[in-house]
Design a protein around this nucleic acid. Sequence first.
DNA 1: TGTTGTGAATCTCTTCACAGCT
DNA 2: AGCTGTGAAGAGATTCACAACA
Lengths: 210, 210
Amino acid sequence: MAQTATISDKTIARLSLYRRLLQQRLAEGAQNVFSHELARMSGNSAALVRRDLMSVGGAGSPTKGYDAHGLAEAIGVFLDAPEGQNAALVGIGNLGRALLAYFAGKRPRLAVTAAFDTDPRKTDRVIHGCRCYPLAEMEARIAEHGVDLAVLATPAGPAQETADRLVRAGVHGILNFAPVRLRAPAGVYVEDIDVAMALEKVAFFARQRG
Amino acid sequence: MAQTATISDKTIARLSLYRRLLQQRLAEGAQNVFSHELARMSGNSAALVRRDLMSVGGAGSPTKGYDAHGLAEAIGVFLDAPEGQNAALVGIGNLGRALLAYFAGKRPRLAVTAAFDTDPRKTDRVIHGCRCYPLAEMEARIAEHGVDLAVLATPAGPAQETADRLVRAGVHGILNFAPVRLRAPAGVYVEDIDVAMALEKVAFFARQRG
DNA sequence: TGTTGTGAATCTCTTCACAGCT
DNA sequence: AGCTGTGAAGAGATTCACAACA
């Protein structure tokens, strides 16, 4: 962690995307990749791809482009916690279950290891490798699992209260799917995914050409 | 549709958010609202809120602020299609069902009216007011329902192919939840919601203070 | 020749600051 | 006294353009 040259929010997101594209590419048997290829695959410009890769000290060759495996590795060194990170999920509804399926076994260094719900019919079992507990045990289980971040998939009503509990329990980041703007202290990173908003945005721009 | 002064992507998203906050506010019995209140509720600055509201010709009063009902109405005039818009959902898995519950009956002018899946056990029924059809009927039902935009909640594999079919069927906007970068012609607006990417972003920033 | 790495230019979005209004 | 509407400044992100290189 030498030079964290205040790397941008958006660059982090794109690096994550590039890594996934590189893995796809590796699975297809490719050895190396050019910035313009990553650009086409990701929907960005080649210049932007190259600038993003500078953040991870991307050493590409003018003739060969970037070594796909080495680059994916370098992005991992940059993005992932060496010791790994555990996440919790709150709200085991349809969305919660979809998210568990989504995250299961994707990244060795980032796993959703504990899920919580108030409904006893949804707890005390394992879904996609994730243990489900009663919400009442949240604080204890978060400590037990060493959870560092959480995915909030509750209804809007209890979202803020739940977020407060998560923060008090020691969580430093929240991915929020509840249609509510969360208030959190400065030391906690909150990312809102607002599907209703997103749908309205698509509807608006879809309309812009009858 | 007189002066569409090329209004920004982000402003559209925030307008949608402001409307929801205004409705919340109205439900609490408030008559008017100040820019700094919307700012606090939305997590933006007051100046940004005022600038966004200029897009909808927001006429606020220096003493009373904005009329909450009138402003919500004005945003609706701006965002919503007067004749309404219908959306389709493809992929009736956990995520798809969660999204149906999410969108059901929220906006009178924007409804998900048709859902599709290849699995016959999931079709020929009604979920949250939305009819579910076999995927084979997609083109016909999209025409029948006058669908203008679609929510893509399939696995990654068939996502691009499904998007192509949607576009050929006349869809102008796609909200994509599959972890794939969609390629679409210029006339189609695509919004990607990449949950894996979002989780990695939160994990990264959560780590930034041990 | 075709690509990387990167300074400089450009474009876009946000905030500042204040005149005008009630 | 306090707020809105907005021109102008500022910050940030992206693209341009080209030197260096294999």
